[in-house]
Amino acid sequence: MARYRRKDSGPGSWLVIIILISVFSGLAEFVLGSAFGLLGLFFEVIVPLLMFAGILFAPLIFIGIGIKIIVDAIKKHRGVSTSKTVSSTATPTVSHKRLLKQINKFFDKNQQLNIDEETYLLLTDRNNVSLETIDIYMREEYIGTLKDYFNAYPNSFNSLSNLISKYLNAKNLNEKQVVEEIKKEVTRTFEKDCAFYIKELSQLKDGIENQQVTKGLEETIHHLKAIKKIEDEFTESKSKTVKLYQYYLPMLTDIVNNYKRLSLNVDSNADFKNSEDRLLKTTVLINGALSTISGSLVEDYYTELNVDMRTLESILKKDGLVDELQNQEG
């Protein structure tokens, strides 16, 4: 064991220790000196510069914030929505407010407001007249609120507002009188097919300046063309796309129409921005769904094709034709 005992003392080892200490202390001095030098530079040059810039720009920033608060307050007072939210598309604009006022006045003396022979409106809360508290009834059945209608069909809602407003402005009308004779010949939405919406969206797309919107609509048209191709070849797949033509595409075209209508009216900038945001997001959503549908239709098409081929193969095998063909190929 004595062989492995370390020699801890001796002139050589002391020398090594002294050299190491001097090397490391030199290094430490260099590092710390540089760090404190930089810190000094920061406090002596950069901080005063920042303070100077702050003193120079702070009044401008405060003035800017002040102007923004005042402009927002004025807009709010005038009834123009400044919030760029999707939900705010559902809040009444000035014309909606006027409409709600008229409806409120009407319900002071009446129980229901007839839209046509089978559709009417009912006010559910007299203390809070809003799109949410006005129910729509069709054939004596609750079908939703005006807000639901506005959310689903903003452009058609505008037409409905005009009809109601026209009726409410007219004098000497009875409680049960119909708002306006709506055309009897109704083209049902769900009778419109893929080709119809390709044409409709292609026409609507023209004249829209925002490239994001046109790009989104072009993608929709592209998906619809792919779906049409599958539907034409594989007619059974049509049963899977009924809901598209029933709800989703009418909804999208209505939103595009509303967007185009608002784009002509330069005064309603906030409404236009909201409508644009909603249109862009609805397009993304519908395109996602269309992509999924076309994918699943293709999968179904190939499954069907495989089944047909297997059936054919089994018939051929039964007749002994497969082996013959294979032999010929061989």
Binding site: I115, M138, A152, S159, V186, F190, D254
Partner: peptide
């Protein structure tokens, strides 16, 4: 929701654009 949308679509179809 779908039954609601179907009826609202019917109304929108009647009212037009």
């Amino acid at each position: 929701n779908n039954s609601k949308l179907a009826k609202l679509a019917e109304l929108a179809n009647k009212v037009g654009k």
